[in-house]
Simulated assay, not measured.
Amino acid sequence: MNERGLIYVFDGYCAWSYGFAQTMVDVAAAHPETRVEVLCGGLYVGSARVPIRQLGDVRATNRRIAELTGAWFGDGYERLTADGSFVMNSTAAARGFAALRRAAPERAVELAAAMQEAFFVDGRSLAEPETHRRIAQEYGLDAAAVVAGFDHPWSLRAAEADFARVRRLNVVAFPTLLVDTGDCPAAIMTGSGTAHQVEDRLSVLLGGVGRHAARE
């Protein structure tokens, strides 16, 4: 599949994206020869930026995600969101991811997963530079450069460029995984799924050329 690429659309604050994170890490590891472009979707922007208590029964949704995917919502996250006042800002999250992605583009899938773990397990706001500093340090990246990038106007432009690209791809649900066949990217997975399911869909879509390394 090296002549084609994958496009992974997620949002740092999307719980369903968090549930899919390990699947995406496994898929990327199974296809080291394949380019994976990671884009931020922009779930909580504009009027969607409201206190978490206004988003319905978030805990019920999280329980469902945990049942389907095995994802764990940590004590730090529970403390941060307990009173319902926390406001998720996807633009800030995308700025942080842009800075991390710039530091290590070949590790974008891992960094996306690490960013979501910082929020959904440790309860660290993705609007705080310190969150992204910690991730950079954990992955052996230039933490000072990542923080500087987060604070620089270019990261806002990068976030907005991601959101615009996602709209052009007609992606409206997160996470979505697409395969770029050189013409019109085709969605192969939305919401939740295992690495085996992704491999099966890749194999069908690409005429049996998908590898099944994730099964091994």
Rank of each mutant, 00 (worst) to 15 (best):
Ser203Trp: 09
Ala143Asp: 13
Glu216Trp: 09
His196Gly: 02
Arg64Gln: 09
Trp16Pro: 01
Glu138Asp: 14
Val172Trp: 00
Val121Tyr: 13
Val204Leu: 14
Met189Cys: 11
Arg211Leu: 04
Arg124Thr: 03
Thr190Met: 07
Arg95Cys: 05
Ala136Asp: 08
Thr194Pro: 03
Arg157Trp: 02
Gln22Asp: 15
Ala159Val: 05
Asp162Cys: 08
Val121Asn: 14
Phe73Ser: 06
Leu55Lys: 12
Cys40Met: 15
Glu67Ala: 11
Arg215Pro: 04
Ser85Lys: 04
Ala28His: 04
Gly140Trp: 05
Ser192Val: 13
Ala144Ile: 13
Val58Lys: 00
Arg107Ala: 09
Gly56Ser: 00
Ala127Thr: 06
Asp122Pro: 01
Leu68Cys: 04
Ile52Thr: 13
Ile135Val: 13
Gly208Ala: 15
Leu80Gln: 14
Glu130Asn: 10
Ile65Glu: 12
Tyr8Phe: 13
Gly182Asp: 10
Arg59Asp: 13
Val9Pro: 00
Val9Gln: 00
Gly5Glu: 10
Val171Ser: 00
Trp72Ala: 14
Asn2Ile: 03
Thr181Lys: 07
Ile135Leu: 10
Leu177Trp: 05
Arg95Val: 04
Glu117Pro: 07
Ala112Arg: 01
Met88Gln: 03
Val25Trp: 08
Thr34Met: 11
Arg79Met: 04
Val45Ala: 12
Thr194Ala: 00
Pro105Thr: 04
Ala82Cys: 06
Asn2Met: 06
Pro32Gln: 01
Thr131Pro: 11
Tyr77Ile: 11
Pro175Asn: 08
Arg102Trp: 00
Phe20Tyr: 14
Gly76Ile: 03
Arg201Trp: 04
Arg201Gln: 10
Arg168Thr: 07
Ala136Asn: 06
Glu3Ser: 14
Pro32Ser: 02
Ala213Thr: 04
Ala159Tyr: 03
Leu100Cys: 08
Asp122Cys: 07
Leu202Gln: 02
Ala71Met: 14
Ala94Trp: 02
Val87His: 04
Leu178Pro: 04
Ala60Val: 06
Gly208Thr: 15
Leu205Thr: 14
Tyr18Ile: 03
Ala94Lys: 02
Ala98Lys: 01
Asn89Ser: 14
Gly207Lys: 15
Ala82Tyr: 02
Gly193Phe: 01
Ala29Pro: 01
Glu199His: 03
Ala104His: 03
Tyr13Thr: 03
Thr190Tyr: 00
Ser155Ile: 02
Glu3Cys: 06
Ala144Gly: 11
Ala173Trp: 09
Ala136Val: 15
Pro185Asp: 02
His152Trp: 05
Gly123Ile: 11
Arg63Asn: 09
Arg215Asn: 03
Ala21Asn: 13
Ala21Arg: 12
Trp72Lys: 15
Val121Leu: 14
Leu202Cys: 05
Phe73Leu: 08
Val179Ser: 00
Ala98Leu: 06
Thr61Arg: 02
Ala29Tyr: 00
Gly182Leu: 06
Arg63Lys: 03
Val109Glu: 05
Asp26Pro: 08
Ala114Glu: 15
Phe86Trp: 07
Ala29Arg: 06
